[in-house]
Amino acid sequence: MFRNNYDNDSVTYSPTGRLFQVEYALEAIKQGSAAVGLVSKSHVVLAALKRNAEELGSYQKKIIKIDDHMGVALAGLAPDARVLSNFLRKQAMSSKMIYNRPLSTSKAVLSIADKAQENTQSYGSRPYGVGLLIAGYDETGAHLYEFQPSGSVLEYYGAAIGARSQAGRTYLERNLDTILETDSVEELIVHGLNALRDTLSQDVELTFKNTSVSVVGKDSDFKIYDDEEVQQWLDKLDSVSNARNRAGDDDADDNNENQETTEETTTTTEAATTEEASNDDNANEATDAPAEDRMETDE
């Protein structure tokens, strides 16, 4: 594989103004299992798929509580998520200590956004390799934010990160209107699990072992449902395996839709490869440059 000259560190722009190291960090999120989040007027639900490294190993924790009114779901490097969530916990405690006030969700996410940005502008540190969905309920209501290693945070009605998350996003987009209108927490969780289910690969289905759910909202503190506790929500699903993989599926539209999205992803990947290829050309140019020049730069 050819090395791209502009992707060695996060302090070098490519000729098109891109930061490859930062973009690669965004790729790291996709290596992690999926997490989805969605909001109604009064509640936020996070749902995540846990992985275990081996049959006898325990499942990786995917949802972390920050404070009574806030929590995060992660996809990507779990240790990086621990660093960020510890930082958020500190912020939450300071807010209580100094202002006698729960930390607002927007302040919380912006604080880690600015922290992440620092790592993208100086040599010797790497960008964080984790994406977060931050769920919070504060005096301005229920909020869901997506955090990226680039230092960008955006507020969403619904979001999905991690492996095959596009399918989850598609589900959320298609059901956005019903999700926003719902008054029932149960319905919100079911939508969350449906979205999560759509991200599953062929041989996997949602079980109480690999599924994590959390809820926070009006009059209810942040609560994580794991293991046996999550079964009550799985019982409410019509199926625990991905619609694409179900044999004799009558929902043909779904199938097409999913295929389309897969195609889309492929095209973008292709586009990216072309881009990289052109950069590789540049790299070749560099090799073709007069020897003297190279000597100078090498030194």
């Binding site: 070098t12 000729p15 103004g17 540049n282 140019e285 560099a286």
Partner: peptide
Amino acid sequence: IGTGYDLSNSVFSPDGRNFQVEYAMKAV
């Protein structure tokens, strides 16, 4: 481009340009 002067910030090219600054402008 590709002569190696655009691979690091704070480096002038022989014709006196700082490529990394120009690339940053591309991002904008």
